[in-house]
């Protein structure tokens, strides 16, 4: 009999894991609470650093995992731990017995309205990185269409590295996402001045620094070191941003047609619910706690339960895919050693 592996979360981590498990001859079951597969990446337009269309990646993953059992619009009702396996009851009434569970529940975008001083949901011309990706994909957003677009700002670290927002961790992908989105907007509005307000630029990945230099040199994006302190609206409906230009040591002010907030990657509340059912440990940053952060990132402390992707912390797409493969290999080794 083919060994069943239950994958909770049909984002790119879950899909890649399913496709690899199929190749090894196992029988993966994907449980996805939304009505579509692909998770967050299905909402993005183009991916840094190569500007790969996100849709291509998601379509390819869906195609290679299509022989799995897939339950959409489905959640976990409860999980019972038996002797050496788990009994999972789904919201559609189906029960599954398995020895192996892979959690790929991903992250949630920080709710930008919680940082009230930035005016998301209060001022019309303040949007988030997620909204901007949506506009790139659909071309529909009145806030962008109806403005002149002479000046655009990006605020880094919104809800990240911020104890006031109860997230002291760095979301890792938003610096490079801001640069990517700034370039994309400059291509659409070549006459606009674009400003990125950052605290540190964290461009760790392959080709990221090249992207930064390109943004500076070829696109003339202005990088201003300083955290935006407050945003207000003027009578014409434009937003006024105040910060300190810490490199100049002077207060700085600018009026913008659009302000994009780089909402961070934070832990998914659904993941906490699920972790509660399996008594999994949650780390101090709110993400699932791996066995350790060096050697066994894809293992939990519980036998038979594995992790991959952004459920254990902010990750890029290639990192998420690599973790999915690595988790599958861990599961495979456990299965063949008969544990």
């Amino acid at each position: 009999m083919k060994e069943i592996v239950v994958i909770i979360g049909g984002g790119i981590a879950g899909l890649e894991a399913a496709s690899q498990l199929l190749k090894l001859g196992y029988s993966p079951i994907i449980i996805e609470k939304e009505d579509h597969l692909g998770g967050k990446v299905a909402n993005w337009h183009k991916l840094f650093p190569d500007m790969t269309p996100a849709k291509d990646i998601v379509d390819e993953l869906i195609a290679s995992s299509k022989d799995s059992n897939i339950f959409l619009n489905t959640e976990i009702s409860f999980i019972n731990r038996l002797q050496d396996s788990y009994n999972i009851k789904l919201s559609n009434g189906i029960s599954i017995m398995t020895k192996y569970i892979l959690c790929t529940t991903g992250f949630r975008l920080f709710e930008a309205e919680k940082k009230e001083e930035y005016g998301y949901g209060i001022y019309n011309q303040v949007i988030t990185n997620g909204d901007l990706e949506h506009w790139f994909n659909t071309g529909k957003d009145e806030r962008i269409e109806n403005s002149s677009m002479q000046a655009i700002g990006f605020v880094h670290c919104v809800g990240s590295r911020d104890e006031k927002a109860r997230n002291s961790q760095c979301s890792k992908v938003c610096c490079i996402t801001a640069i990517k989105q700034a370039i994309e907007l400059k291509e659409k509005f070549p006459d606009a001045q674009i400003y990125c307000f950052y605290m540190d630029l964290r461009l760790f990945g392959k080709k990221f620094e090249d992207f930064y230099i390109k943004a500076q040199k070829d696109y003339g994006i202005h990088f201003i070191r300083g955290r935006v302190s407050e945003v207000s609206e003027n009578i014409e409906g434009k937003v006024i941003v105040k910060a300190e230009d810490t490199l100049a040591g002077k207060p700085i002010k600018v009026t913008l047609d659009l302000l994009v907030l780089m909402s961070g990657m934070v832990c998914n509340p659904d993941t906490h619910k699920m972790a509660g059912m399996m008594a999994l440990q949650v780390d101090s940053d709110g993400f699932l706690k791996s066995h350790d952060n060096v050697f066994h990132i894809t293992s939990s402390t519980k036998k038979g339960i594995f992790y991959a992707g952004a459920c254990t912390g902010p990750k890029t797409v290639p990192e998420t895919l690599a973790e999915a493969r690595s988790a599958v290999l861990d599961i495979h080794s456990q299965i063949i050693s008969g544990q």
Partner: peptide, 25 residues
Amino acid sequence: SAINLDKVDRTRFEELCRIEPDAMR
């Protein structure tokens, strides 16, 4: 001493960047 970016005249800096693109780097 505050900097008001709305009032900055960029003509000459942009001219500089045309012959010295590295000035932005």
